[in-house]
Design a binder for these strands. Sequence first.
DNA 1: AACTTGTTTCGAACGGCATTCGAAATCCGT
DNA 2: ACGGATTTCGAATGCCGTTCGAAACAAGTT
Lengths: 211, 211
Amino acid sequence: MHGRANLTAMRLMDACEHLLCEAEALEDLTARRIAIEAHATPSAISYHFGSQEELVAAVAERVYRRLNAERLSLLRRAADRRAPDPPDLDEVIAALVGPSIRWSIDPTSSYPVLSHFTSMAKTHRERAPHYRRIIDNVEHHRAFVPHLKRIAPWLDEVDIGWRLNCALGIRSQVTRSRSRTEVLTNYSIDLDDPDVVIARMVEVIAPMFRR
Amino acid sequence: MHGRANLTAMRLMDACEHLLCEAEALEDLTARRIAIEAHATPSAISYHFGSQEELVAAVAERVYRRLNAERLSLLRRAADRRAPDPPDLDEVIAALVGPSIRWSIDPTSSYPVLSHFTSMAKTHRERAPHYRRIIDNVEHHRAFVPHLKRIAPWLDEVDIGWRLNCALGIRSQVTRSRSRTEVLTNYSIDLDDPDVVIARMVEVIAPMFRR
DNA sequence: AACTTGTTTCGAACGGCATTCGAAATCCGT
DNA sequence: ACGGATTTCGAATGCCGTTCGAAACAAGTT
């Protein structure tokens, strides 16, 4: 049935996720290593997932779901706290960038999976469409639009979306280009303290939504 | 002498740059293909550059130099125009993000080389330090700091660097996550018009440097 | 003109990779 | 206990980047 609910399929996903977190570089992730860690053979990967890339995609999708759930939960909490008034802008921004920031700092999180996954999309041609569908899935980001619109009603939806997109750019710059960030800020910001980093990001992003 | 001033070494670099521009994915770039396009053999790559990765690094460095020169030239022009007064903020931001934006839109530019190169840094473990030295080279970005400091003297250098870093994040989001940008803005912004995109970016970045 | 020395090119071979495939092995409803 | 579907396995395939020794070439010296 080529199913992924299978036991060894699960073990393969877990092994793949673990190796992706430990791996400094993508070349450290090989089908043989995954198989060994899962007590299986490389053929099992092809059998259950079609290819190694699709296994990685399945793993990445699983991690993405966890991260997005956390984000949306924070957004909901921010909305509920002030309802029926519009939520607090700083809190919404913290919900948007917070989980990614915390994950990227926490050495026990599976954040490396996501960072490796996005760069894999540019390595492989065949599966790229499937990869892009996962990476470019912005549904969970769209959920922020109506709340931001209530906060800044003078902006139309395109303006909101554009600013949201810019905020995402800042987010990935901080999470993924750490050394650049360090150098440009003269090593004067404690990038290991998520609260400090989030506050810094709010300081820059919030003005985008103010008059 | 293992020199890179050699004729076939040059042909290898040109072939590599060309293939990197055409390639949809990095797996399309193989030593054998590069060699064929350069009328040489795969061994020539190892001989002249040590490895394929180092060839790519040499090519990327060459492209980076061209882009940085363009950026700094625009910055200088912006500074000269208003001297001895501080330069126009919008013009400085346009100098920072303009070249990347224009290159990423122009199908004849070598921008894909840079985009592929940054994702290669995450694929290869051994050469990563050498790669990072190229990617994280922020000297040309530091050149913007003093000018921005004159524009916003109430910000200290850490604040300036942080905002500069954020601007770079927005820049790469727009140049590298095009489809995400399209979706979030409801396809209502003409991302093929560099002037439109740059204006949009200035609109978001400039407030970071205003009171 | 022949020889030496240093540089460059080439082709065959190596180990590693993901994947394929047919044959075993296992599972499960009957 | 049987028989068809499902899962595991191991050998084989074709690609990859790189290595290495021999050939080809250039140029200076006798």
